[in-house]
Design a binder for these strands. Structure first.
Lengths: 345, 345
DNA sequence: TCGTTTTTCTAGAACGATCTAGTAGAACGA
DNA sequence: TCGTTCTACTAGATCGTTCTAGAAAAACGA
């Protein structure tokens, strides 16, 4: 049962190992009759096909691409944005018969010697919403494996598939400015607030590059507005609720709340609903991403082609025909009922 | 840059390849000074550590376990139940420095020769909500890799971590019977209804083993009730909405709706809310799983230890100390406000 | 008929590590 | 001092493939 290899099959059929290998990988290199015979014998001996590791070693192709996640895997998946991205990536991966290797990238085991980034047999990596200064990225760079980030990096030789965050946020900012909003709260992802009380942050404390750029875009397009940065925790519905509650129950209510992701904005809408406030009339709420639920909820948001982003990352990593290494995806302001004119004080 | 191997480093330092290997894997097998020197030289030469494929081949350990999914990956992730399971699995995987390999298991490429199940370099596989008769499972069995299912299988030598579906459903059924419900609709996952109109099914058409068993449990514990099986599509919030709408807008309204997953039940609650109906008073809604959102929504449901299930699967696959091959996890009826007595016509 | 191309198969060397077995030399106890 | 154990290291086989050349046989063109 165990220990059945190419050689075993070859000997049983009476051909060379190369021929058996070809039977599996290059069917047109041998006669149909022989191939048939080989496959039958393989079946009979309980041979399950070429060993994946050996094949990977010899051919230099691992047949998998890694997806890096920060912190907790669960959090990453709970976001529809992440799910959409993965779906797009998986689509291309499937096309190239490649699997996706999830690499939970906790900071702790980077310090220790053994970590997934070192060990994983992968042909390339997708870096998904990982802070630019994360130690795992350097290890990855060291391995000489092609990597694609979903954020624009500074290095000219780093591949990325991203959106113009500043421009995207500006579209939203202009929309809000036009509606007369001058008191705005931005809801962001923040580890510090997770599990504890909501916190108010400065721009420097934000951490994630994309969030920072979006806030800059808002600042640029709303020069007359006062922008406050608030976090109710990690990027999730519940955090949006918490952050919005904190803001709504304070003396210093804004006229507009911008979630830097739709899930957070939807959380804010929920908090409003509980307090009997109507989005778009009593208070404006906007989001980012345009996840499916945003349309249902009537949330004004900035659409980015989530699934296409995943597809594009896949193509850059796997498709030799894709030569472009840095892709800027289009964004679009989607105005729905959750945004309206600022109440005159 | 490229082509730097163990040998290169060994030659540069003036030691044997074995020693360099030990420097990485068995630090206590050589003097600290030499290890230091080896690491420094490796760094200098741009050696990124032992090649993953080669290591996997020689040592027989791939350093990854596969997670099988049916159909679309995106659907799998959109369910908080799946996310919770994965989180538990990932936790154990991380502990054993193992990665998770997602293997989307579309039926189409099983037919063709090359598929992920064949090619993937994995030490084991977690079979997550895959129909028992799926062709991919046989391929997996052929490979001789340990596999753990989240459903109880028939074969005595198949490993699984599951719940007693019938018993779990019976708890819920008894609760409903006690409340006087005799007209019940069960919302299930069904590919046929996806994208189209809601469908009404017979028990034979359900497909997924776990769903079927749950329905049997309900039937058993509510012998006097009329059970109808309805699907609004795949296992998702939106499907729950669709399925419930179909039922609520018909002449033949039940007194209770049971979602075979919480997400569907939550969808049903949403559909009720839109129609001005209060769960627990006008109509009873119950779910399955007890995902985090269920508590918030006040949904009566059957709790199963989702994350623990993931952890247990991980332990069975990776932890040699875990000898038990078939684990039954406990379930518990959680009564909240969404269930109440059946209105007397 | 003879040279040329095509088809079908093979020998043997990689791929880059880890493992087994074993060898020196140092340290140890008596 | 001598045998024994321990530490620090190494030689060489091995994991199971695929790849590079190339050879024998068959088919082809003129």
């Amino acid at each position: 049962m165990a220990g059945v290899t190419l050689k075993t099959v070859a000997k049983a059929v009476g051909v060379s190992p190369s021929t058996v290998s070809n039977a599996y990988n290059k069917p047109d290199q041998l006669s149909a009759a022989l191939r048939e015979r080989i496959m039958a014998t393989a079946q009979e001996l309980g041979y399950a096909g070429p060993d994946a590791s050996a094949r990977a070693l010899r051919s230099g192709k691992a047949g998998a691409i890694g997806v890096l996640f920060t912190d907790k895997l669960a959090y990453a998946f709970s976001d529809p944005y992440a799910v959409g991205f993965l779906a797009g990536l998986a689509e291309v991966a499937e096309e190239f018969t490649t699997s996706l290797l999830l690499m939970p990238l906790s900071s702790t085991d980077i310090a220790g010697g053994s970590n997934a980034v070192q060990q994983a047999a992968i042909d390339g990596a997708a870096i998904f919403c990982v802070p630019g200064d994360h130690p795992g990225l350097e290890i990855l760079a060291n391995r000489g494996i092609p990597a694609v980030s979903t954020d624009r990096g500074d290095h000219p030789d780093l591949s990325w598939v991203a959106i113009d965050e500043v421009e995207a946020a500006s579209k939203l900012g202009e929309h809000l400015a036009r509606l007369g909003h001058r008191e705005v709260v931005v809801l962001v992802d923040n580890a510090q607030a997770a599990g504890g009380r909501p916190v108010e942050l400065t721009l420097d404390e934000v951490g994630y590059t994309d969030c920072e750029l979006r806030i800059r875009g808002l600042q640029k397009s709303m020069p007359d507005a006062r922008l406050r940065i608030v976090s109710g925790g990690h990027n999730a519905f519940a955090s949006g609720v918490k952050g919005a509650e904190y803001v709504l129950d304070s003396q210093d209510r804004p006229t507009a709340i911008v979630g830097l992701s739709d899930v957070q904005a939807l959380g804010a809408m929920e908090a409003m609903k509980v307090r009997g406030l109507t989005p778009g009339r009593d208070l404006t709420v906007c989001g980012f991403d345009d996840i499916p639920a945003a349309a249902t909820a009537g949330l004004t948001t900035v659409r980015q082609p989530i699934k296409d982003k995943g597809r594009a990352v896949g193509r850059v990593l796997l498709d030799p025909a894709t030569t472009e290494r840095q892709l800027l995806m289009p964004t679009e302001l989607v105005v729905r009922s959750s945004s309206g004119p600022a109440p005159k004080h």
